[in-house]
Write a protein that binds this DNA or RNA. Structure first.
Lengths: 150, 150
DNA sequence: CACATGTTCGCAATATTATTGCACAATGGG
DNA sequence: CCCATTGTGCAATAATATTGCGAACATGTG
């Protein structure tokens, strides 16, 4: 992992649709050599995957919300059970176990308020071991970055 | 935007490194026809961009945290100024203006606690108009999904 | 320093893929 | 029913990815 690898990773995180030939010339390598680095980075697991990032507003997921959850029973098994149910929901984009007053933080991407209503009823009830939950609506998205600069 | 487009978008969100030829056969189209759909989806802005998702742990960003921020002065201009400063930080992966007790929620990806210390001192001071902030550490990441299923 | 070992490199040949023009089929108003 | 629009497949071409190979380079050892 040298400076050329880091350059390539930064390029890929910004735009992975570029051709190998193109990136090779930018980092000053021959296409073959550059390709072998890319293959190595993928095999080694530094590059998890290559994905398309859609415009959520153009595919009907316009509402974002954050939910902080406190469980009634805090044991590892209860935690795991709740997280399993939450992550199974496609409206749940992020799910974290956290320190502090709350046990879990979820980020949601929703089509409309009805979906929030239905999901809340499904995930945050007595049956799911939830003592308290607070829903916070996102008014403005100032940054959403998948890249990790190096 | 028909059912084939949606299929393509779901494929691309899971793995955008697949070849056009490959995806064409999966959705039952000729490569040329499939390619023209992909080009259209990109030009129309439904596909924002194609990016590489790295393994944060393998590039030294192992700590995640969430920070909720309440500003002292709540005007639009103050909000904008704080968000500008926050989004400029590469440790800040997500930044949202939100409803409720707090004004802003940030997600952080950090190398170590020193970086959290330095960033907190830089972003959450009197000079930056912060009345109160609460830092919550992420213990476990149960889900982080860029895809928006359709 | 000389040498052995392993890694990375560029070149060139080949395979695979992307891209485009064109004619034809499907679709949806008027 | 006809026309205009859009989408489709085919085929030719251009661009790109992929691999073998020998040379350059770095590294560690006697």
């Amino acid at each position: 992992m040298d400076s050329i690898d880091r350059k390539l990773l930064n390029l890929l995180q910004r735009d992975a649709s570029r051709t190998n030939v193109d990136m090779a010339s930018e980092v000053g390598l021959s296409p073959s050599s550059c390709l072998r680095r890319l293959q190595r980075l993928r095999r080694s697991g530094v590059i998890n995957r290559i994905v398309a990032i859609l415009n959520p507003a153009k595919v009907g997921r316009v509402i974002k919300a954050m939910v902080t959850v406190e469980l009634k029973l805090h044991g590892e098994e209860h935690m795991r059970r709740f997280l399993k149910a939450a992550t199974a929901e496609e409206a749940v984009s992020h799910a974290y176990a956290v320190t502090g007053e709350n046990d879990i933080v979820l980020m949601l991407r929703l089509r409309d308020m009805e979906e929030l209503d239905a999901l809340s009823e499904k995930l945050f009830t007595d049956q799911t071991n939830v003592a308290r939950y607070i829903t916070t609506m996102v008014i403005r998205t100032a940054k959403e970055e998948t890249a990790v600069l190096m």
